[in-house]
Design a protein around this nucleic acid. Sequence first.
DNA 1: GAAAGAAAACGAAAGTAATCGAAAGCAGCA
DNA 2: TGCTGCTTTCGATTACTTTCGTTTTCTTTC
Lengths: 257, 257
Amino acid sequence: MPKESSTQERRHDILDSVQRSGRVFVADLSQSFGVSEVTIRSDLQMLADQGLVVRTHGGAIPAGRLSPELSLALRRQQQPLAKDHIGAAGAELIEDGDAVYLDTSSTALAIARHLTHHRYVTVVTNSIAIVNELTDCPNVHVVVPGGRLRRETASLIGADGLDYIRQLNIQKGFFGAHGVTPAEGLTDVSVEEAEVKRVLVGLCRQVVAVLDATKWGRVGVASFATLEQIDVIITDQDAPAELVAQAQAAGVAVHLV
Amino acid sequence: MPKESSTQERRHDILDSVQRSGRVFVADLSQSFGVSEVTIRSDLQMLADQGLVVRTHGGAIPAGRLSPELSLALRRQQQPLAKDHIGAAGAELIEDGDAVYLDTSSTALAIARHLTHHRYVTVVTNSIAIVNELTDCPNVHVVVPGGRLRRETASLIGADGLDYIRQLNIQKGFFGAHGVTPAEGLTDVSVEEAEVKRVLVGLCRQVVAVLDATKWGRVGVASFATLEQIDVIITDQDAPAELVAQAQAAGVAVHLV
DNA sequence: GAAAGAAAACGAAAGTAATCGAAAGCAGCA
DNA sequence: TGCTGCTTTCGATTACTTTCGTTTTCTTTC
């Protein structure tokens, strides 16, 4: 393993190593590349933000190593209280008679769980997890635009359903994201899904981002909404005050829950 | 089982083991993974919290799945044997590489359950039950054309996804029906769904009807395929011989299973 | 079948070691 | 001069252990 390579080369080599060996350790990579463990952790964080690896304690594994059910379960398990609070607050923004779009994030699923007392609401979603959740809610009308099954997120992906959605009048769209920063706005780890979300943001009358504190300051590989395009951000109390202030300065109504 | 795996990998492997063997024991897992029983119990607790396993005394069993030890009678309640046989026969008509349409009938679901050993198969379906079933089959590519949720059948209805389907080359379409007679052909109880099925029959290169004996001679309100449009009927041994003969006279290959 | 005792399993708590990530500072380069 | 990439430092977090009181299950006896 060569030393004195560029940052980009090192990250490429690290990714290659993760994929070849199936598991890497921070300590080993630090020794191999002749850089500090903090630098390796920074590299792995970048690769994780692009959805290429999954960070583990002491190292990383290839994205896709874990089964779809477990990947989904791990995502749902993160910040459960924050997501529930954000979900409840998101549901409170939904009025009887509304047509809303819920994306495939686990925070949008938390919103769906709080719709049991709403009436005449239409939910448009490509999340199979949300469809399953709303099967027991006869008061909610569910529309699924369609696409190809992506097991890791129990959702349907692709742009084919956009024509369907364009025919609908969607009052509010609720979007999770991999990260949010003032410069990059809302970002995702999948370029393809970011492209679809970008169109959806344009189709919704009101855009609501639902993010827990861990998402602030983090950047995924593709942006899908600038701060100016966001009407509301619902987040929890741990959200960093400085970034919240910058979002508010850009005109976003930030709800801390 | 290698040591030095991460927590996520261990839990993935534990979940896999639960699903493969149908039952696991804390003591065995502790020995296999080289960690304490408390750690294994913590792992199982997390998997149980997420609804992936059910904790038992001393171990765990799969969640939402029949354990191999459960009685055959309970399996029968789960799905009648005739449908399972028809489903198995339907799956045998599906070749690796095929793109097939499965409708939202419970017999089509039986087909989906027999696809675990197929490769490179694309399933096009609006049945949420089938999507859920195929979540565990990474070898099967799933496409969902989309529509409005119909809770009674865990499926999506409506003609909106037809444009999507028209772009696809579907070798075989598998259709359940409310009834089949020589005069009316295949019939359904929903005029709306019959209209969609009629279009779908026209889009599939080969049309396969999957019907148990109770469907012969029965008539729903709307027809969606004449006998001449049907290539194969898969049915069980109790199908009435005279109606079977008439179908055969009309050029249908009837498979009795 | 009920009761009693023993064994197995559980989960909470506390402790330890490893790992993490934020922050600050420095060097090199355009 | 400002930016990038790297370092060190250090408080926080994670993952695992052992211990021990509690609970559940099994076995034996009546």
